[in-house]
Amino acid sequence: MNRIILGIVLLFLLIFPVFNLPYLNTFLIILFMYILLAESYDILGGYTGYINMGHIAFFGIGAYTFGLLWNTGLSLYLSFLAGTLAAVVFAILISFPLFRLQGAYFSLAAFALVKLMEHLTLNLSSITHGSDGLKVLEGNRMIPMYYLSLLLVVAVVVVSFLITRSRFGLAMASVREEEEIAFDFGVPVQRIKTTAMVISASFAGLMGSFYTWYTIFINPSMVFGTEMALMPIAMAMLGGSGVIIGPVIGAVFLLIVEETLWTRFAYLHTAAYGLVILLVGLFMPGGLVRLRPVRRFLIRVGLFKEL
């Protein structure tokens, strides 16, 4: 049953560009991007319980590294690779000091890093061009971007699925539930957390590279901005953190709500959007997918896989 549903959805998404609907196509690219950010955030946030409010830093570092290197004449694929690697290296470097912190301290220190990155890219204008932003070679890349981001979304979902079935995933969940006890039972806690962060960062870094390539122009607030940082996390929590399908549903839900509000209301759409986030946080602490009817339906079709 779940295979049939997934197959149909995937097939539809694969042939979608044939219909030649640029507006929806662009919308789907943005959607894929948010799904990817939310889902990759959740590899660390949902499975190990470390709420990484600095996740967007990996995206931004990927975006800037790609743009700067590609502009120097490096080949496209090597630039994509470099963007990903830069995010991974950053993740490894910050994981040692950051993982000494717990709970809200961890989240806030990670968030401070994003703000630091934003200010640094603004001020190191001899390299990054500051608030003027970074431009790369122009070109219409809607269709290739559509497929690349779809591919990346499929990849992150598959990786999440493999994680939930592995002993690595089990160890991640034990860290989330009782970190000290996991350590007493031989779980290499520090290594598990760093690995989770590296996987999470590599997807965000690659997506960041794609993003620069697609939009042609980026500036610090586009990739490190506060709302940009908080939205994917809100999506993951809203949909259901720690459930594979959760961040996907959260991203779809929130983006559709936002799009509807933007087109229906001339004013106050941000307020309405905030209200939706508030209500979900208040009444569905486990996220949309853990609501009883939703959960029952997802279990029946075999799409409720949690860790």
Partner: peptide, 22 residues
């Protein structure tokens, strides 16, 4: 604890967006 942290982020972020926009 980590559920409360998560919910508090959602609720207060939602409230912040709402108050600012209104």
């Amino acid at each position: 604890e980590h559920i409360r942290l998560m919910s508090s982020i959602l609720v207060t972020l939602g409230a912040a967006l709402c108050i600012g926009d209104v």
